[in-house]
Nucleic acid binder design. Sequence first.
DNA 1: CGAGGGTTTGAAGTGCATCAAATAGTGTGG
DNA 2: CCACACTATTTGATGCACTTCAAACCCTCG
Lengths: 238, 238
Amino acid sequence: MNSATTESIKNINFFNFFSQETLKKIEQRASITHHPKGNLLFVNEDQADHFYIVKSGWIKLYRETIDGTQSIIDILTTNQLFGETSIFQDDTYPYTAEATEDSVVLSLPLDLLKSEIEHNTKLAMTMMSSMARYRKQQDQEIENRTLKNAPQRIGCFLLRLTEQQENKTVSIRLPYDKTLVASRLGMQPETFSRALNKLKQEIQMTVQGRDIIINDVQELVHYTCTACSSEYPCNDLH
Amino acid sequence: MNSATTESIKNINFFNFFSQETLKKIEQRASITHHPKGNLLFVNEDQADHFYIVKSGWIKLYRETIDGTQSIIDILTTNQLFGETSIFQDDTYPYTAEATEDSVVLSLPLDLLKSEIEHNTKLAMTMMSSMARYRKQQDQEIENRTLKNAPQRIGCFLLRLTEQQENKTVSIRLPYDKTLVASRLGMQPETFSRALNKLKQEIQMTVQGRDIIINDVQELVHYTCTACSSEYPCNDLH
DNA sequence: CGAGGGTTTGAAGTGCATCAAATAGTGTGG
DNA sequence: CCACACTATTTGATGCACTTCAAACCCTCG
């Protein structure tokens, strides 16, 4: 298991800044867990002892009201980190984490992260950068929900999936099912379906189940980013 | 001016963690600026050289689309900090800052913050805590816009103004004009006006210009927080 | 007093949610 | 390989919340 952990960690930029000593300790106390679809890893306001790295599958982070309405924070996949900010939040998790697919997750002790970060400025800087990046992403999310209509929000989501591709025509595949994409974008499944149809009327594209082909990305950018603040195209934060 | 700067800074928790040496340098390079209502301190994506502390007045942080629609990030007043996260953002500002009242602002060089934070772990930890706090606030903002209707969003805003007061009946004063509150909450002035009326029908309260008297705060909590995720009452982050 | 902003009110329109039901797609056991 | 069960997706009909446009009102301040 240790060697598996080492393997897992070394590809993740975040861990490059850990001291060798701490890394060893982390490896000793790391564990890999399997979570079948629907499984909750932890619940909002739970005591936080570990942070996590997704090895495979998809993990949904959200909060919900008494009546069960959910507000989705994010949906993560391979090599993404979560729960790490609990060290600044009274050691409680600020959201619930649920596997939306069968998932494998690496869990690491928070106390080691905490003490390492208090002594290791490089790591602290990395952590801050990633927090700042996330912050900007959140700002953009609020902006999207305020200024964009449903088809444009979908457009923005698609554009983030086309990242790196320079081609005029791109084909992409939705990372998870449409219902989940809908909730990620803060809309109902019905609205998603209709909004996607509307988008098809606005720009040339083909939808085949989860697969989508966009004939001209620029056309999509033009349609979507009319409602963006100055950064074009929808900036590719991560 | 230097003594004024020292005076300004020492009340702000953030600066307790600076080294004496850096504080001296900061004081030498600090400057106080006056901004009449409507004045822009900087524009989204400007090159960032300074971060700021509000001495008096109100500063609105926002971004806008080509057609001029604004998405408000925050509205700050005395002793609040802004622009400091630019050190993690390629030294550009991620929003526009505008004085919505005649304001006085202290501006401090970012480069000193940057180098100090790279060497001073205590400061780094403070910075991270404040970023984590902000992050949670943003999450809540998204949640509010997703799950709450207009009267409830106003209720939440009012609750945050009643902070600390334990009384059953509280009287509060809107920090700025209703149009601005409306845009802070992501709604039109007309909607704000109507939603406030609706709120008056739901709970016992009196509105007299900017002054509002709430007969029973618990009544407001009950009405507003039905649409909150688990934390009651609307948690008082700052 | 009169100008100009802030605020409220009215009327009409739009976008998304909701409820209901049909359809497509997927995996299961026989 | 088919029939069934179950889920995901789409479609239709309707309602509600908020926006938009227009106009009135109110308040303050020169």
